[in-house]
């Protein structure tokens, strides 16, 4: 009896999990399906999941209109901003744990506080300031803004991690004759890998997925990011659903791949940052 209940319970759990997976993945698969249909099949009734005559025309159109350059721009901004943010934020996170930094509490409040400022509310003033500094509509504009958004998060996350690493570990390394630099390089950073990767992944998702900052801070087509380029297919002639969904597929692949590769760290890093924060 009890055994039977457990079995049905388990079956129900599996069924619910499967249903949840369908609800989560279904829309993405539907986007993929649409992106492979020709224009006059897209609105076909009833809709078909497997396209009758699959076509790559929408992807070809994206390439013909130079969307791959926007893809590379997005990649560039993302990599630069994430590298910078993790380096600067990680350093700060470390220092906040290991050193008697003046006004530590205030700094923590600052980092926490800026995470709460709706970044798009700052876009109007930021644009004006950037123009004055001459970085508006340059390759620097977006990496700076993305990095500044990610740094508080990186601080928060690495701080939580370093707080759990016993100080003795580093001291042991120093006693063993490592220089401070070696100690950092060979002991501290490897140990902090999960937190650093989690912060980097968060930064990646933020920078790669941003739309509003990119559309206000960059105007030249050759500096444009992928989400901004996509919105052009919802343009003057109405929505080109085929091209839009092809764009959705292209925009979604990199974060998903990255996420699958690093999921262990991501999940670990986030949970560590939260539980021990």
């Amino acid at each position: 009896m009890n055994q039977g209940m457990r079995l049905t319970g388990r079956a129900a759990l599996l069924a619910a999990s499967a249903l949840a997976s369908v609800v989560v993945l279904g829309p993405i698969i539907w986007a993929l399906s649409t992106s492979l249909k020709s224009d006059n099949h897209i609105f076909a009734v009833p809709p078909r999941l497997i396209p009758d005559e699959p076509t790559l025309m929408h992807f070809q159109r994206l390439v013909a209109e130079g969307v791959q350059w926007s893809f590379l721009n997005s990649a560039f901004y993302t990599v630069v901003s994430v590298a910078f943010a993790v380096a600067v934020g990680g350093t700060a996170g470390y220092a906040l744990v290991r050193y008697p930094v003046p006004a530590k509490r205030a700094l923590l409040v600052l980092f926490m506080g800026v995470m709460s400022i709706p970044s798009y509310a700052l876009l109007l003033p930021t644009q004006v300031i950037f123009v004055r500094l001459g970085i508006f509509d340059t390759r620097l504009a977006l990496p700076i803004l993305y990095a500044a958004h990610v740094i508080p998060f990186a601080v928060w996350m690495t701080r939580a991690h370093f707080a759990t690493v016993p100080r003795e570990l580093e001291q042991a390394a120093l006693v063993d004759g490592y220089s401070r630099f070696e100690a950092v390089w060979k002991v501290i950073i490897p140990g902090a890998r999960p937190a650093l990767i989690a912060a980097a992944a968060f930064g990646f998702l933020y920078a790669w997925n941003d739309y509003i900052t990119a559309t206000t801070m960059v105007e030249s087509p050759d500096l444009r990011t992928l989400p901004v380029a996509l919105i052009f297919f919802q343009g003057f002639h109405g929505r080109d659903w085929g091209a839009l969904m092809a764009g959705v597929v292209i925009a979604t692949l990199p974060p998903i791949v990255l996420f699958l590769v690093y999921r262990r760290y991501l999940i670990g890093g986030f949970s560590e940052g939260s539980v021990k924060g």
């Binding site: 989560v24 829309p27 997925n209 959705v248 925009a251 998903i256 991501l266």
Partner: peptide, 19 residues
């Protein structure tokens, strides 16, 4: 399961809205 459920979180909000 957790990995699958996390996939939408990796997507851009504007892309999610379009979708």
């Amino acid at each position: 399961l957790l990995t699958i459920l996390l996939v939408p979180w990796a997507m851009s909000p504007i892309v999610v809205a379009l979708l």
